[in-house]
């Protein structure tokens, strides 16, 4: 199971790519595998200001539904436009073209609470 080294992670199986005060958010390869074929992604709108822990939408797989929780506080800058037509892009390429949100973060210190690749790797190995 891939756990790229350049990302941070949450216990809810999201990944965060940090680029200054902007981050990109998606779900991990492990998460998409657990969910199975994704058939719909319901996202929030660009401009939404949210707090860490808020629901940022839902991922609907054939047999399961998963909430996307905000791993940090911030504002939505962009929603992956590919998700509407091809939600399975998350299954096929979770760490790259299957990203979900680009976000401007409002509390950079929250990044310190995220998991390292090693810690996340250990979590999914359990």
């Amino acid at each position: 199971m891939r756990v790229p080294n350049n990302l941070l992670y949450t216990e809810d199986h999201e990944w965060i790519l940090v680029d200054g005060d902007e981050v990109t958010i998606g779900i991990t390869e492990y998460a998409q595998g657990e969910l199975g074929d994704i058939v719909m992604v319901e996202t929030q709108d660009v401009g939404l200001v949210f707090e860490k822990g808020d629901s940022l939408g839902t991922i609907e797989a054939v047999k399961a539904t998963a909430d996307v929780y905000a791993p940090v506080s911030g504002e939505i800058l962009e929603v992956n436009p590919a998700l509407d037509d091809d939600p399975q892009v998350i299954n096929n390429d979770p760490f790259e073209t299957g990203w979900i949100y680009r976000v401007k973060i409002s509390a950079p210190a929250e990044l310190d609470d995220l998991m390292s690749p090693d810690d996340y790797d250990e979590q999914i190995a359990d």
């Binding site: 074929d37 047999k63 299954n91």
Partner: peptide, 9 residues
């Protein structure tokens, strides 16, 4: 078995 290659497939 819940699925093999994937439910949609």
């Amino acid at each position: 078995p819940l699925q093999y290659k994937g439910i949609l497939h």
